[in-house]
């Protein structure tokens, strides 16, 4: 295989616009980070609530929460994205539907963020449930015995410990959010995957383009990991070994 390496082409102006390929890469990275982080915030908030509800004494709430998790876990993220993009607007009242289809600003970005956020929320909820259930039963009883309500027991006794326990699996879910955000290209978000494909097609420099995008994904995953490790250290409970 004799391949003509050329790294300087990134500074060339792209054929279909007046920006350089490097500009494309940077803006692609921006969209990837924006989607992954916004989706992660949605996932963390929803996932914590739903995961907690799954362990709640109220049967109806627990069942609903379980249904949420099963629904979002058992359909591929790409298909969910298409459902939000093509199908969801059809279910809205006529005027709203038209606005979503025609005038909504940054429609692709919001759709991708919501789809990824809900998809990830189911996985976060699963971890939160596992974390809560891994605590000894005595903990909850001790809280109730002190006179806490159910809610107070969760707030002051159960959740603080459960969240510390599940930081390692949450770390990989956070990294997954970056990786899964790559599906956004399919509805036209110009994220890293989208631009790397575009650069390959326009410039023909296959390896350099894919390598650059891959390294940037690496960087994202690495930084996500560092952030979570930092949090893990900050909230560590002395004398308590968090199992990896």
């Amino acid at each position: 295989m004799n391949y003509q390496w050329n790294w300087s082409f990134f500074l060339d102006t792209a054929m279909s616009s007046d920006e350089t390929y490097l500009d494309w890469l940077i803006s692609g990275l921006g969209w990837t980070v924006a989607i992954a982080i916004s989706a992660w915030i949605i996932a963390l908030v929803l996932g914590s609530i739903i995961g907690t509800l799954r362990t709640a004494p109220n049967k109806l709430l627990a069942t609903l929460a379980n249904a949420w998790v099963e629904t979002f876990r058992n359909v591929p993220i790409l298909v969910q994205l298409f459902l939000w993009f093509f199908v969801f607007p059809e279910l809205l009242p006529r005027e709203l539907s038209l606005w979503v289809k025609q005038d909504m600003p940054a429609k692709e970005f919001f759709t991708a963020t919501i789809a990824l956020g809900l998809f990830t929320s189911a996985r976060v909820a699963e971890q939160v449930r596992a974390g809560i259930q891994s605590l000894p039963r005595g903990q909850r009883n001790a809280g109730l015995a002190l006179g806490f309500t159910q809610a107070q027991t969760y707030r002051f006794v159960v959740l603080p410990m459960a969240f510390r326990i599940i930081i390692p699996p949450l770390t990989s879910e956070f990294m997954n959010a970056f990786k899964n955000s790559a599906v956004a290209f399919a509805i036209g978000v110009m994220d890293l995957t989208f631009v790397s494909r575009q650069i390959v097609e326009e410039s023909g420099h296959v390896i350099e383009s894919l390598l650059a995008a891959t390294l940037l994904y690496f960087l994202c995953a690495f930084l996500a990991n560092r952030i979570m490790v930092f949090i893990e250290r900050r909230v560590r409970v002395p004398g308590f070994i968090i199992a990896k």
């Binding site: 990786k179 899964n180 790559a182 599906v183 290209f185 995957t193 690495f222």
Partner: peptide, 15 residues
């Protein structure tokens, strides 16, 4: 494990 499957699919398809 640290890169998106989509990127890997593209890598092989082009490489």
């Amino acid at each position: 494990r640290s890169i998106p499957l989509l990127m890997v699919i593209l890598w092989f398809f082009f490489l």
